[in-house]
């Protein structure tokens, strides 16, 4: 079944947690009229949502666009250790029948040893060539993030040499990730490990 387009106002209120409250405040008549309007919406390409997930790091935060994620699932209980892996890589798990690398996002940023955090979520990120799992502590969602709100790294005082590739800028206190490029860099690091 195709997804019905949802008015942006509803999307944003959903991410704000106000959606159910708004609906609850509608009278029956208003509710059904609203439902009817939704049902009658002509299917059209969904405007690209600008919703982001905010994840905690050891120092600061990072945000990832929801559109760049294939799925958000609970952390796997068991991970298979892959020899000659980077220290921030937890192992491999099966996602939709395919083995994928899982890494600790926090450890990747700090280049430290990975820890399997039970409260973390597994964000399935992908680019054209590979799929990986990012284990991250999601703290909140950002319903809409305008491009001009992101400050390019060059315009900040951040030491770029200590940061991994695939960061396009800073939004408040969070690094904004360019997921395809971020994934490509990670895959490259993992690939380097096999040359032992």
């Amino acid at each position: 079944m195709s997804e019905r387009p949802v008015p942006p106002s509803l999307l944003s209120s959903f991410f704000n947690g106000e959606h159910s409250q708004n609906l609850a405040q509608l009278s029956d008549e208003e509710f059904w009229r609203y439902a009817q309007e939704l049902a009658q919406l002509t299917p059209s390409p969904t405007p690209p949502p600008r919703a982001y997930l905010k994840c905690a790091l050891d120092k600061g935060y990072c945000v990832l666009p929801l559109t760049a994620l294939r799925e958000v699932v609970t952390a796997p209980r068991y991970l298979t250790t892959l020899p000659a892996s980077p220290r921030w890589m937890l192992g491999i798990t099966a996602w939709r029948g395919e083995p994928i690398a899982v890494l600790d996002l926090t450890a990747y940023f700090s280049q430290s040893r990975a820890t399997l955090r039970p409260d973390a979520l597994l964000l399935i990120a992908t680019n054209d060539y590979a799929t990986i799992g990012l284990l991250a502590a999601v703290v909140s969602s950002i319903p809409s993030l305008e491009a001009d709100a992101v400050l390019p790294l060059e315009q900040t005082s951040t030491d770029q040499s200590s940061l991994p590739s695939g960061i396009i800028g800073l939004y408040e206190d969070a690094f904004v990730l360019d997921v395809p490029s971020f994934v490509a860099t990670i895959v490259q690091h993992i690939d380097n490990g096999k040359r032992i």
Binding site: Y78, T80, L82, I92, A94, P99, I190, G193, K194, I196
Partner: peptide, 20 residues
């Protein structure tokens, strides 16, 4: 996948619990 290949590991299988 190529980036996960390692010497001495010739393949993978997935068990009934979804473990690799």
């Amino acid at each position: 996948k190529p980036h996960l290949q390692r010497p001495g590991i010739t393949g993978t299988a997935i068990d009934g619990s979804g473990n690799v």
